[in-house]
Amino acid sequence: MPNIYQPNLMTIKKVINETPDTKTFHLVFQDEELQENFEFETGQFGEYSCFGAGESTFCIASSPTRKGHIECCFRKTGKVTNALFELSEGDTIGFRGPFGNTFPIEEWEGKNVIFVGGGIALPPLRSVIWNLLDLRDKYKDISIVYGARSVADLVYKQEIAEWEARDDVNMVKTVDPGGETDDWDGYVGFVPHILENDFKPDPENTVVVVCGPPIMIKFTFEALERLGFKQDQLITTLENRMKCGLGKCGRCNIGSTYVCIDGPVFKAAEIDLLPPEY
């Protein structure tokens, strides 16, 4: 048995250019037995590696309801993501996972679910969005509020169009002021502002799943609380820097809470019990 730090090999089956600096990979395990038996739940993450550059942490961006391959989506930012960005179909990468806890989707059955995401934070939500849409009867209204710095920075453009076209999804899209184009048909404004002043969701029987940079999570929770949402209706997924994903390397902790083991999915009430260090 290889040690816990040795990844499984995966082949890149498909590359999608999401934005000028963001790509999606469709991945399958090279070991057929593992490919057959691999299971994960929505919200979990993995350690993806380009051999020679190193490992990076991304969520699994596809839904567990969609078998056959897993997907990751990443922006080129540092050494590893730049190296991954250069890879093409047929190339090999490493994967360790799945790690971490999951979105409590059973708890949301019979409720309205609102997804709020910013920029590169849509991939974690996209996994759970498709998971719910594939179990559509179990949930009431499903809404997606998504924004990015500019139109060019919106990821999953094709899927946004698909969600807009569905009559069982309420798609709200926005770009930051100055990021719009002439033919932009969404809102212009920051996500928490559009959420509070334009979308104005009703808290009754509703949960909100927020993903984005820490500052966006903070402002979005505050906006939702002003709209009457209670803490137990608010959920987020944190993305602290990680190396091992196994609770050992000491990097992702917020006080005594390890994001890799205890998270990445947290309820607002759980976040409130943490030291303000995330």
Binding site: G52, E55, C249
Partner: peptide, 15 residues
């Protein structure tokens, strides 16, 4: 606490 990096030499190396 530890870090994990690739020590690369040509087309091979160690994590």
């Amino acid at each position: 606490c530890f870090d994990i990096v690739d020590e690369n030499s040509g087309n091979k190396g160690y994590r």
